[in-house]
């Protein structure tokens, strides 16, 4: 084979000939830069994280001792650190459940009833809050939840201030206002991660074939029965996919509990404080490994429950 029929007109043509004869060469040239970047920068960093988590810190000098030890991981099991992990996981679970409950009507309506321009409006209506500035959204809630803010004003006008006071006096949820109580932290988490639950849910609901609903009706099921035994099981993979986002994002977030809440520690905050002011990078790294571990278990359970087969 002598390559192209036409004579080569320059290096561009000669390279084209080379790519034609050896397709893997072009593939390699294309895939190498992104693979190198992600492999070196990202995987390299993750490896550095794992490595650092097996180091320890000298308690007197505060210098990192680069020797293999499990001491740092053992520190995670101290009561105060276990407390942080437990608090974060509880919050993540509560946020995930609340997101699922709030997202379902939106996703269901958008998937089954919204038509034409309404469909686009619903899509944009979920997309815009998802993408718009994270900090701006958190800040907006600071304005809402502050003692003198809009919620307090509305409660005063409608004489329902006792509801907020009642909520704030529940043991474990206390605070001087909603913005300094765990209720506030919870509300903001739900608000920020809600779109991440809606989108996969809607995608799953849209894939439920119309014919199945008709078959169910033909077999005599009431709409309630169809909903319970046809739609809900088929939507479950979407719920699980969404819950992976809401759970994982809540596990790692440290901005929201820092700005809104009673300054009780969460995993993300612990990581941030330990690497910053405390300078204890090994313990910070070990703390950062915790969400990875929890997510791996979560994904494994989701896989075992068959959540991915249906996707």
């Amino acid at each position: 084979m002598s390559g192209a029929v036409l004579p080569a007109r320059g290096p561009g043509d000669r390279l084209t000939g080379l790519f034609w004869r050896r397709p893997w060469l072009l593939l390699l040239l294309l895939i190498a830069p992104p693979l190198l970047w992600l492999g070196v920068v990202y995987m390299g960093s993750l490896a550095a994280l794992l490595l650092q988590s097996f180091y320890s810190i000298d308690e007197f000098s505060g210098i990192v001792v680069p020797e293999f030890t499990l001491k740092t991981y053992a520190e995670l099991f101290r009561a105060q650190n276990l407390d942080i992990i437990l608090r974060t996981v509880t919050m993540a679970a509560a946020v995930t459940l609340a997101c699922a409950a709030l997202a379902f009507p939106i996703a269901y309506f958008a998937a089954r009833y919204a038509k034409g321009p309404w469909k686009a409006a619903f899509y944009l209506g979920v997309m815009l809050p998802l993408w718009s500035s994270y900090l701006v959204k958190v800040y907006a809630w600071k304005l809402i939840l502050a003692k003198e803010g809009i919620l307090g004003w509305a409660a005063e006008r409608t004489h329902t201030g006792f509801v907020i006071d009642g909520l704030l006096s529940i043991p474990g949820l206390q605070g001087s206002s909603l913005s300094t109580s765990p209720i506030g932290t919870f509300l903001v988490f739900v608000y920020i991660w809600l779109p991440y639950m809606i989108l996969p849910m809607q995608a799953a609901l849209e894939r439920v074939p119309q014919s199945m609903l008709e078959a169910s009706a033909d077999l005599g099921a009431t709409s309630r029965q169809t909903f319970r035994s046809v739609i809900l099981p088929l939507a479950l993979p979407g719920v699980v996919a969404g819950s992976i986002f809401t759970f994982s994002l809540t596990l790692g977030d440290y901005i929201i509990p820092q700005i809104i809440g009673n300054s009780a520690n969460f995993i993300g905050m612990a990581v941030y404080q330990l690497q910053g002011t405390a300078g204890n990078i090994p313990l910070a790294a070990a703390f950062a490994v915790v969400p990875i571990g929890i997510m791996l278990v979560y994904l494994w359970l989701a896989k075992r429950a068959g959540a991915f087969d249906a996707l």
């Binding site: 920068v41 990202y42 390299g44 960093s45 993750l46 550095a48 994280l49 490595l51 650092q52 994982s248 994002l249 596990l251 790692g252 977030d253 440290y254 995993i267 993300g268 990581v271 941030y272 690497q275 990078i281 910070a284 790294a285 950062a288 969400p291 990875i292 997510m295």
Partner: peptide, 14 residues
């Protein structure tokens, strides 16, 4: 997919 705090802490360790 992983929380930002992990990406951030990983880069910080590196």
């Amino acid at each position: 997919a992983l929380p930002g705090v992990i990406t951030g802490m990983s880069l910080r360790s590196a």
